[in-house]
């Protein structure tokens, strides 16, 4: 399922930033953090104003006509050959892996394939294209990391988040039991099968709290909504943050020239 061959581009001058609808509505801080991290790396960020949603909710629900109509709208947002970065493994996976499927045998096939090849999950991009160097400015803290299933399996990014966190000198990263197991979000799965989803997230919260960490970070807003929302409702002392917000907040004082290769 993961790429057998993934060729990272050279560090570009500009990137397109695809914010995703969940970030847009619920977690704009994570989006801003991503933009600021990129800018600090000396990369100009283009935010296409016409962006809405990648179409994934309809795609995974089987409403492919609707998914295609919405996704088609996104295909036109990236006319230049810049990389497209996405602060989400799930939406990134949709665009990278499933756009080619969604537009197979349609007039948009070529542009869809072209867009798909340029899509990068943002933590992957920061680590492997920007080769970002982070200098921790925060207080000592212990966090757990939950990598979303789409980042882990669809995009093959199991190690990316932990590797970024390991650059932060005063952050202790602890790993929860069954780290690779799904948190139970699954988009509409969480409302179509609420009891099963709840059984999954309750165990995820249990394993996270068992690490002793009070905070967890994650690559995806879906997991974040699910795990943090469950923990809050059930009164667990566990809060969550998007990994981009976490990285930015701990390094925002970091001078630009510490970046690897600012122009």
């Amino acid at each position: 399922m993961t790429d057998t061959l993934k060729l990272y581009p050279a560090r570009p001058e500009k990137v397109y930033f695809y914010g995703t609808c969940l970030v847009d509505l619920f977690y704009p801080d994570a989006g801003m953090a991503g933009i600021q991290l990129l800018e600090r790396e000396g990369i100009e960020v283009i935010f296409p104003e016409q962006q809405t949603c990648c179409g994934q909710p309809a795609w995974t629900s089987g409403y492919h006509d609707e998914a295609r109509a919405v996704a088609r709208q996104q295909l036109n947002l990236f006319p230049e050959d810049w990389p497209i970065v996405v602060p989400s493994g799930s939406c990134g996976g949709m665009m990278r892996k499933h756009y080619p499927q969604l537009f197979r045998d349609t007039p948009e096939q070529d542009v869809a394939n072209n867009v798909a090849q340029r899509v990068w999950e943002l933590t992957d991009f920061l680590l492997n294209v920007c080769r970002i160097r982070l200098t921790d400015q925060g207080e000592p803290v212990t966090v757990a990391m939950h990598t979303s299933c789409s980042a882990r399996r669809e995009l093959g990014l199991a190690g990316t988040g932990p590797e970024l966190l390991s650059q932060l000198g005063r952050v202790t990263v602890v790993e929860q039991a069954r780290a690779e197991e799904c948190c139970g979000f699954g988009g509409t799965f969480a409302v179509r099968h609420p009891e099963i989803s709840a059984a999954m997230v309750s165990e995820k919260v249990d394993t996270l709290t068992a690490t002793g960490a009070r905070e967890f970070v994650t690559t995806d807003c879906g997991c974040l909504m699910n795990v943090a929302g469950y923990a809050e409702k059930q009164g667990h002392r566990l809060s969550g943050q998007h990994i981009l917000s976490f990285l930015w907040e701990r390094t925002r004082e970091q001078a630009t020239d510490e970046g690897a290769a600012s122009p």
Binding site: L22, L25, F26, V191, P194, S197, M225, G229, K233
Partner: peptide
């Protein structure tokens, strides 16, 4: 959703 979780909170301003 909210049978088991709190509702996600809309941000004051969108991205």
């Amino acid at each position: 959703w909210t049978r088991y979780r709190t509702a996600p909170k809309l941000a004051a301003r969108t991205l």
